[in-house]
């Protein structure tokens, strides 16, 4: 089962965990808004239509590569506060190794393959987050 959701609504972990896995192993990753250098707010922009397509392609690739019973990718968009959950990914399967690898694959590749852009607010002005070279390295190891 694949669940892909892009929404401005807060991510409810209990709901998502319950939907994500009834199997032997459930691996999850949750990304949250960090207080980097005085950041007080984060805005997530995305490319409607293309985003959902890219996330679905990723989820389908995970299902082909590992023996999984479920893949979940939930990404929040719009304005967020410090500590808010930005992204939740989960992979469930019979055994931990496959669930853990698939979970790492999903978040590593989401960082480079899905059309999201972060804009940070610091005081009275905002700035667009620059991509990290280390994200490309992390994504590349799954290719």
């Amino acid at each position: 089962m694949i669940r892909v959701l892009v929404s401005p609504a807060p991510i409810d972990l209990a709901d998502e965990m319950a939907l994500a896995g009834q199997d032997g192993a459930l691996a999850t990753f949750t990304g949250m808004v960090r207080a980097d250098d005085g950041v007080t707010e984060l805005m997530l922009e995305h490319y409607p239509g293309a985003t959902e397509r890219a996330l679905t392609v990723l989820a389908e690739e995970a299902v082909l590569r590992w023996s999984l019973s479920g893949v979940t990718i939930v990404h929040r968009v719009g304005p967020m506060r410090l500590g808010d959950r930005i992204v939740f990914v989960a992979a469930s399967g019979a055994h931990r190794a496959e669930a853990l690898d698939a979970c790492a694959f999903l978040i590593d590749r989401l960082k480079t393959d899905a059309p999201f852009w972060k804009r940070e607010r610091v005081g009275d002005h905002h700035r667009w987050v620059e991509p990290r070279a280390s994200d490309d390295v992390s994504a590349e190891k799954w290719r």
């Binding site: 899905a114 059309p115 991509p131």
Partner: peptide, 10 residues
């Protein structure tokens, strides 16, 4: 055609 900076989601 969409034109944009490198992506920074997740």
């Amino acid at each position: 055609i969409a034109i944009f900076p490198p992506v920074t989601g997740g």
